[in-house]
Design a protein around this nucleic acid. Structure first.
Lengths: 254, 254
DNA sequence: GTCAACCAGAATCTCGACATTTTTTGTTAT
DNA sequence: ATAACAAAAAATGTCGAGATTCTGGTTGAC
């Protein structure tokens, strides 16, 4: 049985390997990408021997990288039974959404309170870059989706850039990566829904106007919409949610 | 220069070693305890060679344990420059306090909403156990402080036991451990302040009465008081906060 | 006298082999 | 036919040696 989605090419891996400061860092980034894009499926067992060969690193190095991923809750480790990709579930999506709404709005509120000219300038720039790609996204959904992903992330980070709470940022980052995973799994090859750009605009304008309540309301709604989209997809059975390799190989569709 | 506080005895380590499922787990617990109680001081460099000898484990094992501690933010790792105990600061205390107030009250609110008879029973029991030790704490402050620490933790966990958000619990746990570290460093050998018992009672009674607003208000105040106590101590210079080993050995008191 | 380059010494990072535990498979008795 | 037990197979967990990188002290040139 081949991998559910293609891993990155050996050339890409080679480039990343040189860019990384340490081999552990390289392995961490590589595995993380493969989990985020679904090449390593939720619930899948992560055999050290196999991964060792695939990424060309030693067992200790690989182990350390996996341990780092446990911190991000992208990988789970059980006693003496090795590692596996953290499973996904609807309940988990709901939980993540609730937490994100709380943390993200709180961070935005503080950012609006504290932000100065420098913050505004960065935000305007990030908004501009995101707008450009969102206007063109329908010309080339596939080619631009990586670009959109990056600029969308940058925009949301710019929004809360003036929030000075280290911990708030830390926890938010973890949840952002979690939801990024769900997004990528669910939206593989799909187009970004039409209204997202308008949602972003509403958040942006309220934030610049220093209207914290409105900005937070729009942000909460924005996050909620993502959840709704995802749960609809999961319920349609479009994406095989539990993805458990049962003893009886294939069924489900029969 | 000897360690600032005594590590645990070899016998204790031996017992813990047998109890742990894996050696990594053992090393993780041991180092964590030593960080929490201050045996490994904030900002201190963690040389693998030294720790390896102290805990009698291999370098890879130790490395993995340290990586796990990075996830708890008790240890920091920089590129190719090894590990060190995460430094402490007043700003960090403030940050942690703010986050704890937000997360803990949110969790309590949901717990009060969802909790049933079972939850109430567990809570009443935890409250009883805590009360017992808080009433006797003045007879033997030293001997009972470990007991108090454990029962205090159990009580606060019982309060939010009915909250079903996995992530909320996860983040709260991390911050609880962080503040536990600050508490232990600051309160070494001190008595628990008198009013803590009454604060606990206020939280407990409001919670059982299902008065979420009052319970949350008391909780926020409870957490804030801890901050105030700590900052006062740090500002008095009672505890050497930055604890940087400068070239010129001792000064500060001259 | 100041600055840059260089060179040990130390510490970190990486690896493959070995020990231990878990899982699977095969056998036997009820 | 089923269940319990035992041995083989697979995978995980552990370790110390060696390659790589960083540190700070010294030398030499300007």
């Amino acid at each position: 049985m081949a991998a559910p989605a293609p891993h990155r090419t050996p050339e890409d891996l080679e480039i990343a390997r040189r860019a990384a400061r340490t081999l552990v860092e390289f392995a961490y980034d590589a595995i993380r990408q493969d989990i985020l894009c679904g090449a390593l499926a939720p619930g899948e067992k992560l055999r050290v021997e196999v991964l060792k060969e695939h990424y060309h690193v030693g067992s200790s190095t690989l182990r350390e990288a996996l341990t780092l991923l446990v911190a991000d809750a992208l990988v789970t480790a059980e006693g003496q039974r090795g590692f596996r990709v953290t499973p996904i579930s609807l309940a988990d999506i709901r939980d993540i959404t609730e937490m994100r709404k709380m943390l993200e709005t709180q961070a935005l509120r503080r950012s609006i309170e504290r932000g100065g000219d420098e913050w505004e300038a960065t935000l305007v720039a990030a908004w501009h870059r995101l707008s450009k790609v969102e206007e063109r996204i329908y010309d080339d959904p596939q080619g631009l989706s990586a670009e959109w992903e990056e600029r969308n992330k940058a925009f949301h980070e710019a929004l809360i850039g003036a929030c000075d709470s280290h911990w708030l940022h830390h926890f938010r980052d973890i949840l952002y990566h979690q939801s990024e995973r769900y997004r990528r799994i669910a939206l593989t090859g799909r187009v970004v829904p039409r209204n997202v750009h308008e949602e972003h605009r509403a958040i942006f304008e309220a934030t610049l106007a220093r209207d914290a309540d409105t900005a937070c309301a729009h942000t909460a709604e924005h996050i909620d919409r993502t959840l709704q989209t995802l749960s609809r997809m999961f319920q349609e059975g479009d994406t095989p949610l539990p993805e458990r390799r049962t003893a009886t190989g294939a069924a489900r569709r029969g």
